[in-house]
Amino acid sequence: MDVLLFAFLVATAVWGVSRLRDLFAATMMLSLFSLLSAGLFMVMDAVDVAFTEASVGAGISTVLLLSTLSLTHRREKRRERRLDPAALVLVFAVGALLLWGSQDMPAYGDPQAPVHTYMVPRFLEQSGEEVGPPNIVTSVLASYRGYDTFGEATVVFTAAVGALLLLTGLRRRGEADSREPGGDEQGVRMRGNVILRVAIRPMIPFILMFALYVQFHGDYGPGGGFQAGVIFAAGVILAALIWGLHRVREVFTPRALELLIAGGILLYGSVGVVAMVRGGNFLDYDTLAHDPVHGQHLGILLVELGVGITVASVMIALFLLFAGRGRRSPSAVESG
């Protein structure tokens, strides 16, 4: 089933991108593609990959794409518009070939699949002693493959840097170019919505609390820095919608956000560096405390915190940037 889904995915996404002249729709298609493949990874138990793909592919890449789109024309230029049989043929050819190629994939859930027989046994049997946390996913994510996770956090950071680069430029160009659509501040509009205010306002503290729970309870249940960061950011975004952007901006000034975004990565990295300085390899948490288990615990905690900080602040920063799009905001003056 997932094999079919997968082949369908590739074909649809590529076809959609190639067929659609409307860049906005194409962007959405790509985002959808990323989201679906994240789902696919989830199904295949590669949770960390799925999370990265979801947050990066479906989330931040899309945001980046949209921010770029808003600076350029929404439609690609073209001379003629006609149904292209070549594209159609190609898509179906690739689809068919992929189907053919997926014939001898291991069946879904097959316990004899290489995935389940090679590395997983050790993770299942020994991670409790070697690393500690009962949540094996967290062990794999933050310790066995901590370098990957660091890389993924850096991907998020990179996306933020890219978005900041583009959007600060956007403001400048927006001023120079009066054709830019004037950005209605969403917050201004939303503030009038009574239902929203009444219904959501009480939830915000709980959302933020839940985020902290997911953050620090990642050792024991599903969760961790990525999820926590996103949830926390969602809370803040909701707050902004209700109380207005300026209120949030007072707390999260552009400079503070920059520091937080960078700080999370630096925290993660410095855990690794400290491990190095203490005589271990990079990200070898064993060396962090007097005995390996405590060290692992401490390391995972700090590392997840770093991820959470970066993810949350990146989300908030992106939201603020977009919400403030086209508006001459104080931050532009400040950062200049």
Partner: peptide, 22 residues
């Protein structure tokens, strides 16, 4: 190139590659 054009080339490359190995 239009993005569509590039994507088509990519697709074609994939198709040719797959057809070739199969």
């Amino acid at each position: 190139r239009t993005i569509r054009g590039i994507a088509l080339w990519v697709l074609a490359a994939l198709a040719v590659g797959l057809a070739w190995v199969f």
